[in-house]
Design a protein around this nucleic acid. Structure first.
Lengths: 340, 340
DNA sequence: TGTTAGCACTCTAACTCGGCGAGTGCTAAG
DNA sequence: CTTAGCACTCGCCGAGTTAGAGTGCTAACA
């Protein structure tokens, strides 16, 4: 549909604009990317490209910039994958390995890496326990009143909570109740745990057991909000498009709403593989001038979290794409290794 | 040393400047705070106040603004404590109670409250486990290779980690080793845990025990960095002094360095009670134009964390002071309640 | 029919400049 | 000691100007 030359012109415009953040004029293209034609010819091509909506003229006496549609074409068709140098790859691997012992540290490290490697805002959603299935329940006596409840969830995540019984209890009874609970609750997702517990209160756990269940159920937070790790929020100030304070403020205040960010990344990474969402394709108005590159990561094949990068639509798509892809893969690998 | 009237003038300047962020002129003071004298008289007083360093003239044709020394005098002498309305007090209590079941959520909530109530940047350091003493060690078999290690620390904090043994092990042996370890490690601080473990490897834990100790020691993160919860970073844009992008950037990039922030708050909150640090009194250059109000919180009398607020030197000191004081007290109370 | 040079035109960004207003310090009188 | 009066300083704001970049159109050329 597009002539070879139009594609080359579009490619040149996108590349140049990503690099310089300045509207690209016909003369610049003729000079810098030698297409073998004069500026006048390029002007004609640009007029056509504008007509079909791939590029935009901010004002009449300026060059052109890509539209969302133009970026989309670039990402889908033109972009050449960027290969991360082996050296850097192993650096990254090494830095992640260092933190593999504690999931939160690992996730935080990934977030830092993402922002450093891309120079955009990085978002990492910590492994989501909501849909994890319970593998084991263990109750442990701490003292006359307090009990430590340990919940081991399927792909190797552990939750614990100290609860306080209203009356003294018999520590001897705990192992049996633990076994019973494990049997009953195995396979229940964390999300459904509370409801299930409430049903089970009527079960044959004895007086202590029922009391325990009641306390545990009441102590479990109703909805467990997903943890979000942000890095590089400051980097938006490096982008000329956020030199305008109002716009920067808009994005920053969005980023402070962890839940919104978490929902956003979850929504955008719905499909497997790396997803690129450009400008107005985004569901949130505040980032209609941003693009988001996301991917999911998994433990042992189960998708359990997501990572993403938020930057201006004028983003280094190729580079960002590769980095997101690689980090998502790495984190999956390391986490999966842990539970083997 | 200062005449009554000079104090009134200084008070007026600080109050007005905190409110308006505009240099305060003699006429304004005469009009707004009826001291019963004319602008000319006030000008003379202002000239004196400037001479002894309490106020500053940004440029010759502007009014005066307080200097760090002026703010210091205000905080130490003039400031009238702000009483938080009972209604608000109970609102806060209620919001905190909601999250008391999970320490991290609680801490995060406090951070949000701090920033909302003060309109400045809030920092909350999560309970520091480094100096907590071990109360109990419990090993739990997960499968043929993996062991769940649970460390219960003194004032009711729990750490856990899954470790993977290089060879199959005998789950039956775990309870005994748990008991032994608990006995030996009781009272050791988390910080010293690793070193102590390495020493203990030679102990009489049997082959499995020694192997376990070795793995645990190697899996414990060397230095546990303190968790920092920030809120309201966006609020700095509400402050006219940060309308200048460069300055805002400076502060924001400082805030992204969690470790620096954590050290800062730790240093400033060294003494008990609410501490106010003004402008150049701060150890970090980036916040020489900011003031920091901090306090510590504790569990059962042991100081275990700190909270703080960072804002421009032109800060609502009275209000901020009270809010920091109250939230620090509340969090101590709730946490102490938990371990009773 | 496609390409190119030339040219008039448009629009923005940056700069200059003068006037306005707020506030001061000084002086002299009360 | 206080105050009115006054000359002076300086930052801010808006208007006007200029330079520069880029365009679209037209006409000539291959």
């Amino acid at each position: 549909m597009l002539s070879e030359r139009k594609i080359m012109v579009l490619h040149a415009i996108v590349d140049d604009y990503i690099r310089s953040a300045e509207p690209v004029g016909s003369r610049t293209i003729a000079r810098r990317y030698n297409l073998g034609v004069s500026p006048a010819t390029i002007r004609n091509e640009m007029a056509d490209l504008e007509e079909i909506g791939y590029i935009i003229q901010p004002h009449i006496s300026a060059g052109r910039i890509p539209s969302d549609k133009g970026y989309r074409f670039y990402v889908d068709v033109l972009m050449e994958p960027w290969v991360i140098p082996e050296q850097q790859r192993s650096d990254i691997q090494r830095r992640m390995e260092t933190h593999k012992h504690e999931i939160e540290l690992l996730v935080q490290e990934v977030s830092k890496l993402l922002s450093v490697l891309t120079n955009y805002v990085a978002v990492v959603l910590a492994p989501q326990i909501d849909l994890c299935m319970l593998e084991r329940v263990q109750l442990m006596a701490l003292d006359d009143y307090r009990v430590l409840v340990i919940l081991v969830l399927h792909p190797g995540l552990v939750q614990n909570r100290i609860i306080r019984m209203p009356v003294k209890y018999d520590p001897e009874a705990l192992p049996k109740i633990s076994r019973q609970l494990t049997k009953r609750l195995q396979g229940v997702t964390y999300r459904d745990l509370r409801a299930t517990l409430i049903k089970e209160i009527q079960g044959d756990y004895g007086e202590l057991g029922s009391a325990l269940l009641e306390v545990i159920a009441s102590e479990l937070a109703d909805t467990k909000q997903e943890k979000v790790f942000l890095s590089g929020a400051i980097s938006i100030f490096e982008q000329p498009e956020f030199r305008d304070l109002e716009r920067a403020k808009g994005l920053l205040s969005l980023l402070e709403q962890k839940e919104t960010v978490s929902n956003l990344i979850n929504t955008l990474s719905r499909y497997s593989g790396v997803q690129v969402t450009i400008g107005r394709e985004n569901p949130i108005e505040e980032i209609h001038e941003c693009s988001v590159v996301t991917s999911t990561y998994s433990i042992g094949g189960e998708v359990i979290g997501a990572i993403g990068v938020i930057g201006p639509t004028r983003m280094e798509y190729a580079n960002t794409y590769s980095v997101v892809e690689m980090l998502a893969d790495s984190i999956s690998e390391i986490l999966s290794e842990l539970i083997k």
